[in-house]
Design a protein around this nucleic acid. Structure first.
Length: 227
DNA sequence: CTCCCGATAT
DNA sequence: ATATCAGGAG
């Protein structure tokens, strides 16, 4: 005898079911061939499209190999290699600093705990969760990026605004075995249909269960969502 | 809170 | 011209 599903729980399960049907092969779109490359790709992906990150890392990963290469390169040279990525000066510093720490504090290996990862420069909870999930097969949270934040709120799955508050809120209603899938599904849906600026509600498989759907005047502009 | 900051879509 | 892109540091 299970307790009846709360509305938010049922909403979450319905969202996951429908999106899994819509995006059956949904998975990480960053390209990498080892944990260090994964870490670097995710650091670079902050406020930048994965498509552009993949285009740049193709050259980057051919030029640089282990953490020693990133730790020893001149920071300005590394920044030039990243000059079509958002915030390339900051990210060059993050990567160089993280590579040094990986060599000096972690025996050349990318750490496998949340605390150790978030101590690295340029690595917050979102980046650490991605590296844990895809680099170490450790799922201890839900990756909350800009798409997960925006769409979870539009669907009424959370009313929290900050990613640090949204994550534990979602962890209570999304079944644990689909925490990793949940992020990929919302990212795919965010890119294809539920875009930030001009969501295509007419072609959305969630329209009938979405409180923000165009034409429904119940919630729409509430709480500062651009809608 | 501000700053970082190029490429792309609208 | 402007908003947005797998955020994080100070």
């Amino acid at each position: 005898m299970g307790t009846p599903l709360e509305p938010r729980d049922a909403q979450a399960e319905e969202v996951v079911d429908r999106l899994m049907e819509e995006y059956p092969d949904s998975t990480i779109s960053l390209r990498y061939s080892n944990r260090l490359e994964l870490l670097i790709a995710v650091i670079l992906s902050a406020q930048c499209t994965d498509e552009r990150v993949n285009k740049e890392t193709e050259h980057l990963f051919a030029k640089y190999d282990g953490p020693e290469d990133y730790a020893s390169v001149d920071e300005e040279e590394l920044a030039e290699d990243l000059n079509s990525i958002t915030y390339y000066n900051s990210k060059a510093g993050y990567i160089k600093s993280s590579a040094r720490d990986i060599i000096e504090k972690h025996d050349g290996e990318v750490p496998d705990t949340m605390d150790e990862l978030t101590e690295l420069s340029g690595v917050g909870r979102k980046t650490a969760n991605v590296v844990l999930q895809h680099g170490h097969d450790v799922v201890e949270g839900i990756v909350v990026d800009t798409h997960v934040q925006r769409i979870s709120r539009r669907l009424g799955l959370t009313e929290e605004k900050r990613p640090e508050a949204i994550e534990p809120d979602l962890m209570e209603i999304v079944p644990e075995d689909v925490w990793q899938q949940y992020t990929h599904l919302l990212i795919d849906h965010g890119r294809a249909t539920c875009t930030a600026r001009n969501p295509d509600c007419d072609d959305c498989v969630l329209a009938d269960i979405c409180p923000s759907e165009k034409g429904d005047s119940d919630i729409d502009l509430a709480s500062g969502e651009a809608w």
